[in-house]
Design a protein around this nucleic acid. Sequence first.
DNA 1: CCATATAGTTGTATTATACAACTATATGGA
DNA 2: TCCATATAGTTGTATAATACAACTATATGG
Lengths: 318, 318
Amino acid sequence: MQNGSSSMVSEVRVASRDLVRQLGLMNQTVAGTDLSVSAVHAIIEINQTDRLSSKDLSEKLLLEKSTVSRLVKSLIKRGEVCEMRSEHDARVKHLSLTPIGNNTLQFIDRFAEAQVSTALDRLGNDAQAGILKGLQDYSSALQPRMADEMPDRSGAAVTIESGYSAPLIGRVLEMIVSHMNRHYGFGSSFEAKVATELAQFIGRLDSPQNSIWRALRGDEIVGSISIDGENLENGQAHLRWFVVSNTIRGGGVGGALLDAAIEFCDSQGYHECHLWTVKGLDAARSLYERKGFVLAEEYRGDQWGDEVLEQKFVRSVG
Amino acid sequence: MQNGSSSMVSEVRVASRDLVRQLGLMNQTVAGTDLSVSAVHAIIEINQTDRLSSKDLSEKLLLEKSTVSRLVKSLIKRGEVCEMRSEHDARVKHLSLTPIGNNTLQFIDRFAEAQVSTALDRLGNDAQAGILKGLQDYSSALQPRMADEMPDRSGAAVTIESGYSAPLIGRVLEMIVSHMNRHYGFGSSFEAKVATELAQFIGRLDSPQNSIWRALRGDEIVGSISIDGENLENGQAHLRWFVVSNTIRGGGVGGALLDAAIEFCDSQGYHECHLWTVKGLDAARSLYERKGFVLAEEYRGDQWGDEVLEQKFVRSVG
DNA sequence: CCATATAGTTGTATTATACAACTATATGGA
DNA sequence: TCCATATAGTTGTATAATACAACTATATGG
């Protein structure tokens, strides 16, 4: 497992910050227009995709749907965009640019093209190609990858088993703690806390309210998830210690673990299943939301040691 | 003069947009925090520079001073930043991070480092280096360059002369029209308009209210500027047709032309000098502001043909 | 000494983002 | 077929950010 070197990472960050400033991304208006970044992106996307809906736009811009709804409304008011109700689904509206919107798009294109080509003209062809490749590699590498969307490089089959097998506690600790240490600097007190609670939980596995699953690649434990039915109020399950090894890419391991946990909750008749995570783990969030979890709360908390921005997700049954 | 190819430019733009979205730059909060992009940048800068003032910060972030003042005020209120009045200048306050601010900085660093290294780890060392170099090249190439800050590649001396010499109208037209065509798509009607007005103005050069200057490199006209004293109200001069050739880099040609025009205005007793420009020409804007021009108005206008976002700058004497 | 410049603050206006609740329409299982 | 639930989009609400302009306090140089 190779890490980008600390100096390389720092320098990428410096360059990224510089780009943000040069491109005016902190300013209220961009591209020589009186439009925001989001509005400029929206206009470009609306032009590029036939029959684009607000939902599509929200997904492309990675913005919340109400934000997009208001953005579209504002652009319609300016005369830049018009909408037409879909013939197939009366809820959906297809967005397109008006002639005014097309004028604005042309202006934006000229402005941006001039800006970029002015920059590129200062450099030779090799450097230009390097810029393009670097930007493309970086942006695609930044894409959140859901565990079950990436091809498994090892090619070995992974199975999901319920119950304990050695060295489950150690493996779970290793995977969780190395991740949290790397991302949040959590150290020994964090690991001690998790170990104590997990060990205590394993001692409670004989209770039908609790269960644990492990993902196995051969004999190797590469993932785990637990449902603790004794930790919250009656009728509420606590999804805990959900982790997939960094060596796993794809194969749907995370999704399968989550499915197993959810099926257990439903068959046990839990009304709700709660989990806590740290803001920013977008891949995990996507997976939770796909499985019916909804963000219930967000706060600064220290349940994992140091203070982080915590999110609580809840999946409710009826 | 080589242009970045149209396809190359488009692809750089696509990748840039994608980066904006992946990095969450359109979102209200970033880096797993409840802070804005600007606040995160501010915290990082305050940590990096001893005795940083608000003015310094405003220059680094490329944000307006009142925005920075409020941003700092907000961070102080949150307990992240403290300020200390300078011993040398009672107006200046030096900013530093509090222990709370340092905690936040550490969180941001970990978050960003994990994000970047997660992305970089997906790629080999060559691609990582390519990303870094591409980002660095692009951001530095995007830096606005003032004409008089860039070394003159030709090495030949440029002189400023007043009055007309052939083919002044043609050269001014060529420089202005190719620039505006490239940046804004202005075409034949624009050129006809400029030619008519410039030719008419040359016919008015015998009036002591008007004057024109040209920058000469040998016999070649590489820049020009005009003051039209009959175009606005009494006491107001109209600075028109200011242009420097793309082949000129540095040598202070733009500044020298502007100085000549300003000296003329002052000696003629004009109370004000007005000029119009297009929003987004940051290099020109810097130069104007350095010479005492102040943004007076900004609006959508079409004085140059197609509709653009126009800015009017005014330099007042007493 | 004083007109002017400068660093920073405040007045004012506008706008953008997101959580939550709501409305209208679609869907699929009983 | 019906109805509980899901979905696309809108609105309520709150908060915060950005910038032009005017102001206050301090510095500067003729």
